[in-house]
Simulated scan of single mutants.
Amino acid sequence: MKKALLGLTLTFSLHALAAPVQVANSQDGDILTNEAGMSLYVFDKDAQGMSNCNDQCAVNWPPLAAGADDQAEGDYGIVTRADGSRQWSYQGQPLYLWVKDQAAGDTTGDGVKEVWHLARP
């Protein structure tokens, strides 16, 4: 929506961006995926509302990034990472992708080192 005010044009956003997450049915049951259908994961070593996956871990397990204008809603929250970037979470658990998943529907990260698990609704 645009509104002229004293010769200035201001632009307002009517909606904050929602979590880029959807529920998909996989061979492992219902799971959370990103908008492209790539599986999302949670990490046992994370604390509620805090990511403990940094540096090389975050290279292998890319955080599901949240933009500056994104807003938490319902079960979907946003955590601030150690480097100051923002990451989506589900019920307080930060969400990640797995670098070795190559196509939508891949779930190869489930059970890695017994600390990575598919995110489930």
Rank of each mutant, 00 (worst) to 15 (best):
F43Y: 15
P20Y: 04
F12D: 01
P121E: 02
D55L: 09
A36E: 15
A72V: 07
M38H: 12
G67C: 02
D75P: 14
G84R: 04
A65T: 11
K100R: 14
A119K: 08
T9D: 15
D106F: 05
A19T: 03
G49E: 09
T108C: 10
L17Y: 11
M1I: 05
A104H: 04
A65L: 10
G111R: 11
L8C: 10
Q56S: 04
R81K: 12
S13I: 06
N60L: 13
M38S: 05
R81N: 15
D46N: 12
G29D: 05
T33H: 03
K100V: 01
P94V: 09
A58C: 11
Q22L: 04
S13P: 01
Q71D: 08
W61I: 02
L14Y: 06
T33N: 04
Y76F: 15
H15P: 00
L14E: 14
Q93A: 13
F12I: 11
H117Y: 06
G105W: 03
W88M: 03
V79H: 00
S85L: 11
T80H: 01
D101R: 07
P63K: 12
I78V: 11
P63Y: 10
I31K: 02
S13W: 01
L97P: 00
D69T: 14
K45D: 13
V59D: 09
R120Y: 09
L6R: 11
E114R: 11
